[in-house]
């Protein structure tokens, strides 16, 4: 129970987000467990995790905003600074490093003119280096909006950046990016996965952060 009331006016969430939020809360024996999926929902709703989004989540699960922020700031994928439309995450952990990830990252930074940790002025591309993303068999690897591309080279990394700049895809289809820019994979991924990421958060149906299979996207 907290006496302090929000001083700022809330931008309300959409009806569909509210409905999804209550579904998510209902999936757990205790509402607090829904904090993490709700934070993703907040990102999808506003493009990134705003103070408003955290307040909203707090009120949905009965926590203080400080408690929600404590959780949000613990995890690297909740972006509290407005990232670009495309978040390029370059793995530089041990296996990728051994196979040239530092060159891949330098190529991405150079081609995009965005230093790791930053976003370009038109808020199109954000670049970050990340720790191991579990693609060590296909090292070096990157993700764009958490959609994986394995077997990168410095050159393919430059192509990827140029493509994002020029093609400006509505959503990122991982399998498509892999075909266009990737190389060796950790393992056979199986059939073409058409699910696509709508923003700098993982594409996952129950969160509503994914666009469903779009048959017409691929010839």
């Amino acid at each position: 129970m907290v006496e302090i009331r929000s001083p700022s006016v809330r931008r309300g969430w959409s009806e569909s987000a509210r409905a999804r939020a209550s579904e998510i809360v209902g999936q757990y024996p205790e509402p607090r467990s829904a904090v993490m999926p709700l934070l993703y929902l907040a990102m999808a709703e506003e493009g990134y995790l705003t103070d408003n989004g955290m307040r909203e989540v707090a009120s949905l699960v009965g926590l203080t905003p400080a408690q929600v922020r404590a959780v949000a700031s613990f995890y690297t994928m909740y972006k509290r600074d407005d990232p670009g439309r495309y978040l390029i995450s370059c793995c530089t952990s041990i296996s990728c490093m051994l196979l040239g990830s530092d060159e891949v990252l330098r190529a991405i930074e150079d081609e995009s003119d965005v230093t790791a940790g930053e976003t370009d002025p038109e808020e199109l591309i954000s670049v970050e280096h990340v720790e191991c993303i579990g693609a060590c068999g296909g090292a070096p690897a990157v993700t764009v909006n958490y959609e994986l591309i394995e077997g990168m080279t410095a050159e393919s990394a430059r192509e990827l950046v140029r493509w994002l700049r020029t093609a400006r895809p509505e959503a990122i289809v991982g399998a498509e990016c892999q075909e266009l820019f990737g190389g060796r994979r950790s393992f056979d991924w199986g059939p073409f996965d058409r699910d696509s990421a709508l923003g700098p958060y993982p594409a996952f149906g129950p969160l509503g952060t994914v666009s469903g299979p779009a048959e017409d996207q691929d010839g």
Binding site: V130, E147, D195, F204, G205, V210
Partner: peptide, 11 residues
Amino acid sequence: GEYPRSARRVQ
């Protein structure tokens, strides 16, 4: 969280 394809297939 970095495994959205895993999550989609498991879901």
